[in-house]
């Protein structure tokens, strides 16, 4: 049964991108284990506002694990100790009475901190803009059944497309590498006939953008795959390597 618990949260506070950050610890009383992690932070912020203090800034939007906005590195795990979920789907029943929970922002050169727990993830948008799409040179609407797609390919593409671009892969990686994200985005299109014509250009320009933005070199530790809330497989990274090398050797 869910109980009410008393906890302490150790939160990273940083006033702005250039300011020096520090940890601050706050005590919270009677938090229902049935409440979500972000609701707990809402309660904390209400408490801070009532005390006349500045609330903690953190990213959140849909709160149902699909938008990819929430982040937070909680007790040594991106998206917290529970597996296969985003922070907004994490519940306080994962914690016990008397716990001190350490909450940090994603830490990576590619994701600079904006304020408190909010990081700038526009690097991912820039990588997408570099080629993560299918060009629409619109003609007539093609018949949906005119392009047969093998079931296994369709499944793999859908699995890769489950990536919500939250950045947990980068946050978990000891190399600050964005390979799992880029691999998922390249794979979801490279596997389908609609994405094939641009596959080589896409792989090259997205990897080039990723390198340019200061993400690290993947060393296949597999930490990204373990922490990914959407279970994206590192097999996609092998596919990205394959697509990229094929494209480069063809040049």
């Amino acid at each position: 049964m869910d109980k009410d618990i008393n906890i302490k949260v150790k939160v990273w506070r940083q006033n702005g991108p250039k300011e020096k950050g520090r940890f601050e610890t706050y005590a919270l009383k009677n938090i229902s284990q049935g409440s979500s992690f972000l609701e707990m932070l809402d309660i904390l912020n209400e408490q801070l506002i009532n005390e006349g203090k500045i609330p903690v800034a953190f990213d959140h939007d849909c709160r149902e694990g699909i938008c990819g906005m929430c982040s937070l590195y909680i007790n040594g795990h991106p998206h917290g100790p529970d597996g296969e979920i985003t922070t907004c789907q994490l519940h306080m029943r994962s914690f016990n009475d008397g716990d001190t929970i350490t909450i940090e922002p994603w830490r990576s050169a590619g994701f600079p901190i904006i304020k408190d727990l909010v990081v700038d993830r526009t690097a991912f948008e820039k990588i997408m803009q570099a080629g993560g799409y299918v060009s629409v040179n619109t003609g007539g609407i093609p018949d949906a059944n005119a392009i047969p797609i093998p079931r296994d390919k369709a499944e793999l593409a859908m699995d890769a497309a489950a990536c919500i671009g939250c950045g947990a892969c980068v946050a978990a990686c000891k190399n600050g590498s964005a390979m799992l994200f880029v691999a998922a985005k390249v794979s979801q299109l490279a596997l389908l006939p609609q994405g094939k014509p641009e596959a080589a250009r896409r792989a090259k320009s997205m990897v080039a953008k990723m390198d340019e933005l200061g993400f690290g070199n993947c060393t296949n530790t597999g930490a990204c795959e373990v922490e990914c809330p959407k279970n994206i497989s590192i097999s996609n990274i092998a596919r990205l390597n394959r697509e990229f090398l094929k494209a480069k050797f063809k040049d």
């Binding site: 590195y73 007790n75 795990h77 050169a109 060393t219 922490e227």
Partner: peptide, 28 residues
């Protein structure tokens, strides 16, 4: 080269909490 670049890519501020992600020891 790769190790240095990866070290820089990790950013200047490191996590205070030790990573609890389960990965093969040798890979790290």
């Amino acid at each position: 080269i790769l190790t240095l670049q990866n070290w820089i890519a990790r950013g200047r501020n490191r996590y205070a909490s030790k990573s609890k992600t389960q990965v093969a020891w040798s890979s790290k």
